[in-house]
Simulated scan of single mutants.
Amino acid sequence: MSAKCFLIPRILILVPIIAFINGNPTSSSQLDQNASSGSNDRLDVRLLMLQLTELVSRDNELTSKVADLISSTARLEEKVAGLERDRLRIDERMKNHDRQVTVLTRNTQRQVKESKREVSSVKSRNKILQRLVKEQKNDISYLKEENMDLKEQLKESGQLVERYRLLGEKVVDHEDKGVHGGFYDVIRKSDSEISAFSVAREFDQSGNSSHFVVITYDKVDINTGEMNPETGVFTCRIPGLYQFFFSVCVTAGGRAFVRLVRNETWETGLYSELGELVQSQGILMALTSNDTVHLELGMNDAFGVCGNRFTVFHGHLLYRA
């Protein structure tokens, strides 16, 4: 409210008072009647004038104060407007902050999900590794058992060699009997009682995806004639109980399935995918005349056995039928 609006009601109050003081002309009779009280009225008028003057002064002071209040109110309104603008800026910053928090929360949740997937993947790989370790432990245990069997077979082979040596000692020398002595001479002399072979591969051999491949041999240690190293087939000449043993080394990074076949019948075998690890197998079989025994490599181009005499095949007669 402006200062002029504040002064209007006070001016309206002063107007009738001033009019009363100045007054309109009165009649002489009235003046005569009021003569006695004229002096008192003048005193009242003077007092009233003083009061009016004081009221006007106060009214001016109030008007000044009202103007100051109006000015202060305007400044406060400007401050309030400034605070409102600050509030709006703060609200906008809070909205931006909330948006950033939302984005960070989503990113964090995504990272947590990815971490969980990675942990799950690591656990799966760990389970696979544990299974592989367990399988390798089983393989090691199996190889240990095979090693024990090999030791037993070597012991039996040693006993067989001792038998051959004893037989050799019984052979008369060249002067007495006209027969050349020695171990292989015993074998030649005792063809009707002995049947044995020991062959190996010097070079690698690969499989074929269309058919089984018979393993052949290019290194012969012992052969009484029943093993054909070029075809890889042993043909029984003396019926009886035979012991066969074979050892296979898989080519580097490869795998192999090798089986022992008697007369086109699969008797035993082994499978390996460890690469460059020698695995062995043995069997006892009763054979009759003209029975055949050989080793076959499985139907797969990826199958292969290595040479360097790591792939070997042994067999010998234990007892005649």
Rank of each mutant, 00 (worst) to 15 (best):
G168I: 01
Y271M: 03
P16I: 09
A35D: 04
I13T: 05
G82L: 12
L167I: 13
S27H: 11
R201E: 07
L14Q: 01
M285N: 01
L284Y: 04
T224N: 00
K113H: 10
S206Q: 07
S157T: 10
Y164E: 00
T265P: 00
D98N: 14
D221M: 05
V186R: 00
T231Y: 02
A200S: 13
V56M: 15
V122Y: 09
I90M: 09
R117E: 13
N308F: 14
N138R: 12
P239A: 12
K65R: 03
S198P: 01
S141Y: 13
Q281H: 08
V213R: 06
S64F: 13
K113D: 08
Y164L: 04
I222Q: 01
V80F: 15
R262P: 01
Q159K: 10
R131N: 12
D185L: 06
R255F: 13
L76A: 12
D218G: 07
N208S: 12
D149M: 10
R106F: 15
K79L: 10
V312T: 11
G225C: 10
G282H: 12
A35P: 00
V101A: 15
D218H: 10
I128H: 07
E78T: 07
L297D: 11
L88G: 06
I11G: 13
D204T: 06
L270V: 12
L104T: 02
S289T: 02
S195G: 05
F310A: 01
S64H: 11
V133S: 09
V213N: 09
N223E: 00
T235P: 08
G207V: 01
G240M: 11
G158N: 13
I194A: 07
E162K: 15
L277Q: 02
R320P: 01
A286C: 04
H294W: 02
K4G: 03
T224K: 02
Y242F: 14
V250I: 13
T268A: 15
A321E: 12
I283V: 15
S39M: 10
V179M: 03
L43K: 08
G282N: 08
R93L: 15
E193M: 15
T268F: 13
E118F: 09
A321Y: 02
N290A: 06
K123S: 04
S280N: 08
S141C: 10
D185E: 09
E54A: 11
R58M: 04
Q136T: 14
N308K: 06
I187N: 00
L166T: 03
E169I: 06
S124I: 09
R117V: 11
G315F: 00
A252L: 09
M94H: 11
S192K: 09
I70Q: 05
S121N: 11
E193W: 07
I17Y: 12
S198L: 04
S120R: 03
N208D: 15
L143S: 10
K4W: 03
L150Q: 04
I17H: 01
R188D: 15
D41L: 14
R99L: 11
L31F: 05
R75S: 08
M1L: 10
V15D: 03
T102C: 08
D191H: 06
K170I: 02
G315S: 02
S192T: 15
G282I: 06
K127H: 07
R99Q: 14
G315W: 00
Q30A: 09
E193L: 15
Q30G: 04
D173S: 14
Y164K: 03
